[in-house]
Design a protein around this nucleic acid. Sequence first.
DNA 1: CCACCTTCCGAACGATCGTTAGTTTTCGCA
DNA 2: TGCGAAAACTAACGATCGTTCGGAAGGTGG
Lengths: 190, 190
Amino acid sequence: MSARRTELTRAAARLFAEKGYHGTSIGDLAEAMGVQKGSVYAHIESKADLLWEVAREGAAAFHAALDSVPDEGPVVERIRAALRAHLRVVAEQLDVATVFVREWRYLAGDRREEFIAERRRYEERLRALFREGRELGELRTDLDDATAALLALSAANWAYTWLRPGLDTDELADRFTALLLDGMRGYASR
Amino acid sequence: MSARRTELTRAAARLFAEKGYHGTSIGDLAEAMGVQKGSVYAHIESKADLLWEVAREGAAAFHAALDSVPDEGPVVERIRAALRAHLRVVAEQLDVATVFVREWRYLAGDRREEFIAERRRYEERLRALFREGRELGELRTDLDDATAALLALSAANWAYTWLRPGLDTDELADRFTALLLDGMRGYASR
DNA sequence: CCACCTTCCGAACGATCGTTAGTTTTCGCA
DNA sequence: TGCGAAAACTAACGATCGTTCGGAAGGTGG
């Protein structure tokens, strides 16, 4: 893929995140590239291609982040690592993450189905961590792991709305992890 | 507001939630009403009016839900009540909640500012519960209450993506509350 | 029965949409 | 230096966008 084509994808990610897919016109893309709008079609076949490309890039980034989490070791540490990896992707590729979480639904046809499958697979990989933690006894044995995974996933998926590049995402992830692990109830009331 | 006008607002909430604000045309609205698209303007002055109305309805619903939470009593119970109230609104007014969480950003000008202020106020009201819990010693005194509130808010704001009408939102809220309070760490590792 | 108000129709508006086509410019490389 | 590919330009396409307008139903209350 040519350098110019890559620039176009970057501009698409930024504008789709900022104004939404339907709120971004080919003219907007062209203006961001400093080019006439017809020229955009030297690089793509359709506007939908750009959405597909950014969405796939997001899926790849989040899956790659999860790949960095070891398969073994204490589950608690692996959950912390997964949260760290996720938030790092959000902070470092905020536009792509935004499209991944919010704009993907404007995908159409087979691409939409394929994306949803990838998204579900990502959620399953995260969920498995919590289930394994319960089964191995590293988390409480009476844990509602589906709800726990949903809570963690909510924090991860909502992050694009408030996370700003430059924040210490590792520390943020650790704060979330600490809360998820130990809760917020006072010692006296245990 | 006439009955017909109310129908239009309902259709707008549904379509904005389903296809997005920019993905919904006046023609779509008209078709949902069984009417020619020009006729829609017997009820509104602009498409933006409908977005504003639905967004305001959402803000009112969530604030009203929080109003039902008592000002006194155990903080833990008030947090549970707030989560219950929030999830109930999401389940019972899913379209409105979706616009409130996701589509509001297409508001323009003063309306956008006003909405953001209302949204911030809602978040502040929730945050205050956690801060109060820490200060009164009902939650752990070393609690990172900002993060705790953010975690709860993430669960609340993400709910529109998976919550379906008919689910027992009280039970879901209680599961979240239980997790937030006691965490998921195994007893053995405390 | 008439006046009024709400609602809708049908046609049209200028603007903008995504996309296509033919041509021209730019530029790295043989 | 010249060739070929990549990139951009210009102009236009049909479709659809949000919106306007004059007039016609339809029902309600005086």
